[in-house]
Amino acid sequence: MNNFSYTPAATAKEAIGIRKDKKDAAYIAGGTTLLDLMKANVEQHPQLVDINMLPFKGIQETTDGLRIGSMERMSDVGENALVVQQYPVISEALLLSASPQLRNMASIGGNLLQRTRCGYFRDPAFPCNKRNPGSGCPAQQGDNRNLAILGTSEACIATNPGDLAVALVALDAVVTLENAKGKQRRVPLLDFHLLPGTTPQRETVIEPDELIVAVTVPAAAHARKSHYVKVRDRASYAFALVSAAVGLDVQGGQIRSARIALGGVGTKPWRAQEAEKLLIGKPATEENFRAAAAAAVRGAQPREHNRFKVEMVQKTVVQALQELMA
C-alpha cells in the first residue's frame, strides 16, 4: 500500500474541500473496499479523508418512505425494525452480504461504491480497461465465470458485485449527493451506476467533489411484500453468482405492481422492467413468473464460462417470486 496522509474531516465542507483540490485523494468510511484495493495496489491515493464523523446518520421513516444516512452501517440497517418490517428485501440483501464483521464496518454509502470482484481488475499484473483504460480486457476470452451477461461491452464485462444496490434499485431508491457548495442533488439509483460502454473506468455519476449523504426509498405495497434470494458457491460469506430482488402488490388475485432486479449478472445493479410489465394485471402463477424471468434475461450475452447464469438467474427469479407468494 502506498503511503498517504490522513485527515479526519469534521464537516462535509471540509471533506469535500480537500477532494476538490486534490482529485486523487479518497474518502474513507468503513475502508473495506478502499483499503482492500489499496493493499492490492489497484488504487493509490496520496491522502485519505476520514468521513466517519460526518452526521450522515439515521434510519428514519419520512412522509413518503425510508431515509438511510450514508454513514449507517450495513449491520444496523439490516437489523433495523422498520427496514425488516416495511422493506424486507433491503434487510435480506444486507444480511446475506459479506460477513457479520464486514457488515459492522461497512457503510451504506461505501457499499454503493464498491468495485467489481473481477480477478483481472484486482491483480495489477494483468491488463484491464477499468483499472488502466485502453490496456485491454483479458476477461473476454479468459476466466469470466463470475462476470456479467447483461449490459456488457467490448471494453468490459465486469459484474457489479453488490447485493444492497440490487434491492434498492428494485424499490426505486434515490441517492442524495452534496457538493462543495453545499448544494444537494438527487439521482435515482437506476441512473447512478453507469454501463461500461467504452469508459469502464467511470462507474457512477458521482463527481469528485460530491459526497453521498443519504439514500431514500419510497414506501409501497411492493416494498412491504418483497424478498431477496442469493445463490452462491458456498453457503455464506460469498458474493452472488446470481441473485434476485422481487416485490409484488397482489390484490384480488391480480398483480397490481411488480418489481424485479437481478444481481450477479449485470454490469450494474440490473432492473428488469420489461419482466415487471409482463406481470401487471395477471395472476401470480408459476407460468407467469417463468415468462417474466425469460423476459428479464432477453438480450443476455454470456461468455464461455458464465452461460450457466442465463438459466440460473431465471430460476432464481421464479424461486424468489414463489417464496414471496408462499
Partner: peptide, 24 residues
C-alpha cells in the same frame, strides 16, 4: 477481509482489524 483471523472487538462490535487503520 476474507477470513476473519484478525477479528477484534471495537466498541463492543466485531470487526476485521486488517481493513481498518490504526489511526482511525
Amino acid at each position: 477481509g476474507q477470513c476473519g483471523a484478525c477479528t477484534v472487538l471495537v466498541d463492543g462490535k466485531r470487526i476485521n482489524s486488517c481493513l481498518t487503520l490504526a489511526v482511525m
